[in-house]
């Protein structure tokens, strides 16, 4: 067996970085737990529940993209070129939800 020679020097772990990762994990787990409690343990109206879920989802998405995927620490131009195109999703969302309501009216509306 040929002995492999390691050429790369191992850099010691940065405690602060690891702590940050577990902190973000805590945020994500907490947000998911809150979603559960609201979904099953409360009598809030459907629209309030839905609004809370959407806000918590965006909260979680922000942390995953910004910290886990490290986008928050990239160059501004890279952040913009990924985030700005997502504006088209908002358009599609509005267009198709209006369309869905129109289909409902056409099929079942009075």
């Amino acid at each position: 067996m040929e002995q492999e020679k390691s050429t790369l020097e191992v850099i010691p772990a940065d405690k602060a970085k690891i702590t940050k990762i577990w902190k973000v994990t805590g945020y994500l787990a907490a947000a998911t737990t809150v979603e559960f409690i609201i979904a099953l343990g409360t009598d809030l109206s459907y629209s309030i529940k839905t609004s809370i879920f959407i806000l918590l989802t965006i909260y979680k998405a922000y942390y995953i993209v910004s910290e886990f995927m490290h986008l928050g620490h990239e160059k501004r131009s890279l952040i913009n070129s990924i985030v700005y195109p997502c504006i088209f999703i908002v358009w599609l969302l509005i267009a198709l939800l209006i369309q869905g309501e129109a289909v409902f009216q056409a099929l079942l509306g009075q």
Partner: peptide, 10 residues
């Protein structure tokens, strides 16, 4: 979003 649309049409 297609899910949302189909759901809204039911």
């Amino acid at each position: 979003i297609a899910y949302g649309m189909v759901r809204f049409s039911h």
